[in-house]
């Protein structure tokens, strides 16, 4: 029970990576609160507190922060993905991606940093896409690079009181990944090609990311701050120009 006695807030815990982190934190003994747009999911365990919240709404975030005391672990996981190049992106795309992925993380950090106790840990979900560009994902890539930069700033400005790190997941089996493959002319072939680019020959699962989040949230990571931790099955370690794939 590596998180016994700790209180955690995980944004976007309805499904996918966020839900994986909620479940892993529970198993390690943390008291977990999560939130998302819309009503409480039916299958959320009873001991997990749910708040309906749009992280882009600064007033609502501030209200939640003032009502919740002593949060030791904040995971900024809520995120949206819009597939578009810069040239094709609309104002609505900008509002959706930047509103949730950038302003949402900022809103949460601004509201919680002053209220978090000594020794707290903030974990932002960045992305390998914030370090190397995924095609036709311009605003998403940029929003994740924003998260990476904000992570370092919080670590530098608010250490030693608060540690702040980001996890950069690779391709994780969630609805977002399937939506990506559907864009390809041959989704099955795209999936095969993507698998061949992973040293471990599989995509990630939410629990792969959750196990890193548990470590970063725990006191074992007491010297880890300001860093981006990539967990991607080895994908970004290999050159995209792999002649074996042509």
């Amino acid at each position: 029970m590596r998180l016994a006695g700790k209180r955690a807030l995980v944004t976007g815990g309805r499904q996918g990576i966020g839900r994986g982190i909620v479940e892993a934190f529970r198993r390690e003994g943390a008291a977990v609160t999560t939130c998302g747009r819309g009503p409480r999911p039916d299958n959320l365990p009873d001991d997990v507190i749910w708040y309906p919240l749009d992280v882009a709404d600064a007033d609502a975030v501030e209200k939640l922060a003032s009502a919740t005391d002593g949060t030791d672990i904040l995971v900024n996981n809520a995120g949206v993905q819009v597939e578009n190049t810069v040239a094709n992106s609309t104002d609505a795309d900008w509002e959706a991606v930047i509103g949730t992925n950038c302003r949402g993380v900022f809103n949460l950090c601004r509201a919680y940093v002053p209220r978090m106790p000594e020794g707290s840990s903030i974990i932002n979900i960045g992305s390998i896409s914030g370090r190397v560009a995924d095609p036709s994902m311009a605003l998403y890539n940029a929003s994740k690079a924003f998260v990476h930069g904000l992570t370092r700033s919080i670590a530098v400005d608010h250490g030693p009181k608060i540690r702040c790190n980001a996890i950069c997941p690779g391709w994780i089996e969630t609805g977002m990944l399937d939506a990506g493959f559907e864009l390809a002319s041959d989704p099955a072939a795209a999936r095969e090609d993507a698998l061949a680019r992973h040293a471990v020959r599989r995509f990630g699962r939410p629990e792969d990311i959750a196990s890193m989040a548990v470590w970063l949230a725990s006191d074992e990571a007491a010297f880890a701050t300001g860093q981006l931790f990539t967990v991607d099955g080895g994908m970004t370690a290999a050159s995209p120009l792999n002649p074996g794939l042509f």
Partner: peptide
């Protein structure tokens, strides 16, 4: 088990 090929900075 899914972590491979990475450089883990701890500083």
């Amino acid at each position: 088990r899914y972590a491979s090929g990475q450089l883990w900075v701890l500083d």
